[in-house]
Design a protein around this nucleic acid. Structure first.
Lengths: 221, 221
DNA sequence: TTCTTTCTTGAGCGATCACTCAACAAATGG
DNA sequence: CCATTTGTTGAGTGATCGCTCAAGAAAGAA
């Protein structure tokens, strides 16, 4: 059932009216990015398993046949949703901060403060999609759980990488290992995502972020 | 369907051979605490929604009819499981530490260090049952989600209460509000639970606990 | 026009979901 | 003994799950 994954299901364009060479066959009746956005909202809100295909087709405005023809199956749709989420501002702010900030401390301070703003933002479901969908998957969905675990592990690896650089530059508090600090900030970030889902607002999460940063003494300019 | 909650479903005794007055009718064929333990493991491992009644009856060694006669329905069984979990060492260590430790700092240090030991303990499912079951509930299970949110909120309230006492005694770092510190530790604890489910071991979580405690300057003896 | 390709549609697949119930079994009270 | 109460059992409820498929529709290619 899985494993045939047709590579020919790319429609690419958002509106489709771009000047690319015309395609054969009947064109899709839906905007791929629009229906992906609808699916994203649902998965973000309810998680992977708790979101049914029926709810998905309802929110996306397409029939099951179209969904399976365009995306493969529920798991493949979810993976595509997560990929898109990682490229969005709400899902990609961590990578952006790590890449843009000059010092490691500035990067992690920005990450925590932006999380305090983004996670409880009422214009989208609360928390981080990847962290939300984390817990509680049935035995049958083990592949999806492993996929999500991998994403979180990759995030921790990026944290550690950045902090190892910081250690070489003498930015770290004495006696602190980069790995330990990376896992600490990862833990706080996961906690903040879950707190947001429990209704924590920006003010509360911002205070948490500042307290969490106290584990790291201020920079000496 | 809900709301009739028969109060007559108490069998109380573990083995039943205690000297209480004999009961009418056919005695249960199963040990109530034993089957509750089996249900606890399953809910702890998979969460509420991802655990099916079929899996429950299989692990508990009873038929659906017996389950519904003895516990009401899936949600009521889950609530009874959570109550028992809260009275167990693994689920109740937070309350014990808050009650037993003399200073607030000692209490929270103990909470975080015990969490680092308990959450990844391989003799039971990883993390905290209440925090695990938190995320991702379908719309139909909103009552269960609300029940769990309430438990976590109550925990935060206990944190804040303890820290308000600490503030009156001058134990708190200057400029820190008890509520903010309570939410910070609650956030770290939630993150540690989730990290444990992602495979974090005691050593890693202990290091995280010490870093988290750095937000609170050491006591002056 | 006709052929080929691609997508949509509506019906429906078997499996599983939480849950129920009549019939039977085992205990106590009289 | 019989009546009552309580528990177990096996079969089975309708609903929903993820998913499939033949038939038809809309496009370009010939």
């Amino acid at each position: 059932m899985v494993g045939m994954t047709p590579e020919a299901t790319r429609t690419a364009g958002t509106t489709g009216t771009t000047g690319t060479a015309a395609k054969r066959g009947r064109p899709p009746a839906f905007d791929r990015t629009a229906v992906l956005a609808a699916a994203t909202r649902l998965f973000w809100e309810r998680g992977y398993q708790a979101t049914s295909v029926g709810e998905l087709t309802g929110a996306m405005g397409i029939k099951p046949g179209s969904l399976y023809a365009a995306f493969g199956d529920k798991a493949a749709l979810f993976r595509e949703v997560v990929e898109g989420y990682g490229r969005s501002p709400e899902g990609g702010f961590v990578g952006v901060a790590l890449a843009q900030e000059a010092s490691a401390r500035a990067a992690f301070a920005r990450i925590l403060r932006e999380a305090a703003r983004i996670y409880p933002d009422p214009t989208h479901p609360a928390g981080c999609l990847v962290m939300n969908a984390a817990v509680n998957t049935a035995a049958q969905d083990e592949e999806v759980a492993e996929f999500l675990r991998g994403l979180r592990a990759e995030n921790l690896r990026l944290f550690e990488e950045r902090l190892t650089d910081a250690e070489r530059l003498g930015e770290l508090p004495p006696g602190t290992s980069p790995a330990a600090l990376a896992r600490y900030f990862g833990t706080v970030l996961q906690g903040m995502s879950q707190r947001a889902r429990d209704g924590a607002d920006t003010t509360e999460l911002a205070a948490t972020a500042e307290l969490a940063l106290a584990a790291w003494p201020p920079e000496r300019p």
